[in-house]
């Protein structure tokens, strides 16, 4: 591994898509793009913490878009990240009920050639709500599900990381935890509304 990776857009997309060097890719994105985005948010009513949170959400969204093969490369990575971060921030301002300020600032800073990223923004918002439900699960369930669905560990490997005696116990725990999370999602009013719209 090189000490400080430098990527072209194509190389960055390739690295993220392949799931290799993801840590280095994230480091590169932060080094390369976080400063400009943070400055923009702070110039438009955000605090340093707001800028930090918005950019983190933006990076997560970008990686997911790339990993699902939905990044088309119509805009550069920089433009894509900026668009996502700006729009997510204006969405946040709107939620904070500062709509007058939001509309004025948005129109002043909007790039007329900017791609419509509204669907990404609503997806980010939905993911954030879901993530909150994962946090409600409790530490042991969270750990089991992360090991299996994010780390892609086998049941055998999971036993080494968990205070359970054997693979069957871990497997049962995973069933229960996933069902518990699905239950939390089902009971969430905002997500239930989305479900009803989908089933219409």
């Amino acid at each position: 591994m090189r000490a400080q990776e430098q990527y072209t857009d194509v190389e960055l997309i390739a690295a993220i898509s392949a799931g290799r060097e993801l840590n280095e890719a994230i480091r590169f994105i932060y080094r390369q793009y976080s400063q400009a985005t943070s400055s923009f948010i702070m110039q438009h009513g955000g605090s340093e913490q707001d800028a930090d949170d918005i950019f983190q959400e933006t990076v997560v969204a970008f990686i997911e878009v790339v990993q699902k093969g939905k990044y088309r490369g119509e805009a550069s990575v920089k433009t894509f990240l900026n668009s996502i971060a700006r729009n997510y921030w204006f969405n946040e301002i709107k939620k904070r009920d500062r709509s007058g300020l939001r509309d004025k600032q948005f129109e002043l800073s909007r790039d007329k050639n900017e791609a419509d990223v509204s669907h990404y923004i609503s997806e980010m918002e939905r993911k954030r709500q879901l993530r909150e439900l994962v946090d409600q699960l409790g530490e042991s369930c969270r750990k089991v599900l992360l090991l299996f669905y994010y780390e892609n560990l086998s049941m055998k490997e999971m036993v080494e990381h968990l205070p359970y005696d054997n693979e069957q116990v871990v497997r049962n725990k995973k069933y229960k935890c996933l069902q518990a999370l699905a239950g939390l999602i089902k009971d969430n009013p905002a997500i239930a509304r989305q479900m009803q719209e989908i089933l219409k």
Partner: peptide, 27 residues
């Protein structure tokens, strides 16, 4: 079908939580 949809959402949520944590760690 509904159950299947929620289970998929749950897995997506876990993966998103994992990625969010990884990005936070690197940051």
């Amino acid at each position: 079908a509904q159950e299947w949809y929620y289970l998929n959402l749950a897995v997506d949520a876990v993966r998103n939580a994992g990625l969010h944590e990884q990005v936070a760690f690197i940051k």
